[in-house]
């Protein structure tokens, strides 16, 4: 399932871990903010999925990409996030559909149908996903028409020079592949669709 967390919360979590010199017990992180552990878990899980954080034995540690993200400007953070999201099956699927869609547009209902292979996605679930994609500038969103609009110059590999999609050494390219991660058929597999977590490709 896609996490019940926002990009703002994800970045807040990275900042929090950084205050502890990049590694800290998860319970202690939650305690810092007077939160229950389960209140930070969605952000933590997704941070791990994206390769920004590693969690071992209840201890969260920033990865190189996570540290990199904190060392750059607010603008550049979005570029890093965009590169990471693009590698997840979920956003790959949406972007592929957007590419093939007439006029490069998808309705919210279309997105819901794309996800419906595995879940019965609620409106808020879909809106959260749209919000992430929009934040990371993977696509534009027209709230009057409720449609996603392709951002062709960015999405289809013709990125601005500052952010080649997967240049060697780019933050995204460093994320380690997860085991049993069949990227090639990912977008057609309902099982994977429900687990964008498993598909951060190298």
């Amino acid at each position: 399932m896609f996490p019940k967390a926002s990009p703002s919360e994800l970045q807040g979590l990275l900042v929090l871990i950084n205050e502890h010199k990049g590694t800290e017990d998860v319970a202690r992180l939650a305690d810092d903010l007077d939160l229950e552990i389960d209140e930070i878990l969605p952000s933590l899980d997704y941070a791990e999925t994206l390769g920004l954080v590693k969690v071992v034995d209840g201890r969260a540690t920033l990865s190189d990409t996570g540290r990199k993200m904190l060392s750059v400007s607010i603008r550049e953070r979005k570029t890093i996030l965009r590169d990471l999201l693009k590698k997840t099956t979920l956003f790959k699927t949406i972007l592929r559909a957007l590419e093939s869609a007439p006029e490069g547009k998808l309705t919210e209902d279309d997105v819901q149908r794309l996800l419906a292979f595995t879940t019965a996605p609620s409106d808020s679930y879909v809106l959260n996903i749209i919000n992430w994609g929009r934040y990371a500038e993977l696509f534009r969103y027209d709230s009057d028409e409720h449609v996603l609009v392709a951002v062709r110059s960015r999405v289809q590999g013709r990125s601005p020079p500052s952010s080649p999609p997967s240049a060697p050494g780019s933050p995204g390219a460093r994320v380690s592949p997860t085991a049993d991660n069949p990227v090639s058929d990912a977008s057609n597999s309902p099982r994977d669709l429900a687990h964008p977590a498993s598909t951060v490709a190298a």
Binding site: S8, E9, Q11, G12, L13, L14
Partner: peptide, 19 residues
């Protein structure tokens, strides 16, 4: 703001101030 979001935004304000 919720606690995590506030945490992130505080850091962003510091970043803008330092720039």
């Amino acid at each position: 703001l919720d606690a995590l979001t506030a945490e992130g935004l505080r850091e962003e304000v510091l970043q803008l101030w330092r720039d």
